[in-house]
Amino acid sequence: MRFAWIDLREVPRPQLQAVVDAAVHTRMAGVVATDAELLRTLPPTITRVLATAAPATATAKKPGDAEPGAKGQKETKPPAGSGIDVLLRRFTTQGELDALAADHRATGGTPAAGVIDVQDDRTLKLSCAGAMALPYTVIHFADPTKIPLEIVLAAAESADGKLVTAVADLEEAAIVFDVLERGSDGILYGPHGADEVFALARLLEATTPQLELTTLTVEGIRHVGLGDRVCVDTCSHFDEDEGILVGSYSSGFVLCCSETHPLPYMPTRPFRVNAGALHSYTLGPDNRTNYLSEVGSGSTLLAVGADGRTRRVVVGRAKLESRPLLEIRAHAEDGRLVGLTVQDDWHVRVLGPGGKVLNVTELRTGDELLGYLAKDQRHVGLPIGEFCKET
């Protein structure tokens, strides 16, 4: 589960209280500050992270050592009732990292967080070691390339700790969460105002839903003549049971198959869906529809599997060409009509129950298709509770 820590250290003073209130309201995972008194005012639902300037130097407690807080012994955990959950300390050497890890072991599992600036090969290797040894490792990458982050993610694949990447803005946060398809566990972000906290909350919630697909029964097929159809070329490789949802009506869609399966006379195009006529709706993220005529380079669509799983895919291009068209009419168990107009060609396919691949020119009355029934009508692609009849 990805998360964010709000860094208060660079927040403009006039905006500080509003940012704190927004962090609490949006249930951000944590807040980082150098002001212990400020952190103590926060509710226990937020991880209160106290950033200290001093590097880690404590060592693990051995039998006979003085109790924490005694003369000559450095405190290695926040005292009970302090209102501080995690101490964030900088480490720049292997010795300082070892001290942080020893603190964590000595305090019986109290979370320890280390922060490091990755500027070269030495600090990159040290950040990888930190990700393996600490409950939290906060990394600031000096260079804009995401290759060092990829290396840390790969090195820490089996680690129990959480990797937190410092980001400069929300655009970088979105990128960091997608690196290697896994992304950083969390981000550290210093907003300029409360609006950015709310925008970050929306980014964290931007997951795609599991859809409940339904079985549709074909009731009619007819050749309708020449028209314009759209092929959607995405920037992703579809699985064999994946496609996109397309329909002539906003209330219902058919799962159109990608060109992942072998075809005679031409190679596969595992990134493409021969989707349908340009008037058709396609279901995208955030429960919003778009006409195929509106889809283009940079658009985001919803890839849907036969089991209802979904993910975002980015469109590389949409290709509009005139072709003979075929209209498919089907109905759901409740009698709802679902229509789909596609290119009239054997190479165009839809998916049936269980991910069965069906060539559209071989469909017959009574055949079963996989589809999705929307709960609302649409206005400019957005769901709306109004009366609307489509024929």
Results as ranks from 00 to 15, higher is better:
residue 182 R to S: 04
residue 304 V to N: 00
residue 282 T to Q: 12
residue 383 P to M: 13
residue 99 A to D: 05
residue 109 G to V: 00
residue 126 L to C: 13
residue 285 P to D: 00
residue 321 E to T: 01
residue 176 V to P: 01
residue 99 A to P: 01
residue 279 H to Q: 12
residue 242 E to F: 00
residue 216 L to A: 08
residue 230 V to R: 03
residue 132 M to H: 12
residue 331 H to D: 07
residue 28 M to E: 00
residue 356 K to Q: 15
residue 11 V to N: 14
residue 68 P to W: 05
residue 105 R to N: 06
residue 65 D to H: 04
residue 324 P to I: 06
residue 311 R to W: 00
residue 42 L to H: 13
residue 186 G to M: 07
residue 243 G to I: 08
residue 321 E to V: 01
residue 1 M to I: 05
residue 362 E to G: 05
residue 281 Y to K: 11
residue 252 G to V: 13
residue 340 L to E: 14
residue 304 V to S: 05
residue 5 W to Q: 01
residue 263 L to V: 07
residue 145 T to D: 14
residue 24 V to I: 13
residue 11 V to K: 12
residue 124 L to H: 00
residue 224 V to H: 08
residue 219 E to I: 15
residue 365 T to G: 15
residue 198 F to S: 12
residue 54 A to G: 04
residue 307 D to Y: 03
residue 114 G to R: 04
residue 241 D to F: 07
residue 75 E to W: 04
residue 129 A to M: 06
residue 295 V to H: 01
residue 60 A to K: 09
residue 298 G to H: 02
residue 297 S to F: 13
residue 162 K to Y: 00
residue 299 S to P: 09
residue 187 I to P: 12
residue 249 Y to T: 12
residue 94 Q to W: 03
residue 191 P to H: 10
residue 168 A to W: 13
residue 35 D to N: 08
residue 51 A to F: 05
residue 212 E to N: 05
residue 322 S to V: 06
residue 71 K to F: 12
residue 174 A to C: 14
residue 236 S to P: 09
residue 249 Y to E: 04
residue 188 L to M: 07
residue 88 L to H: 10
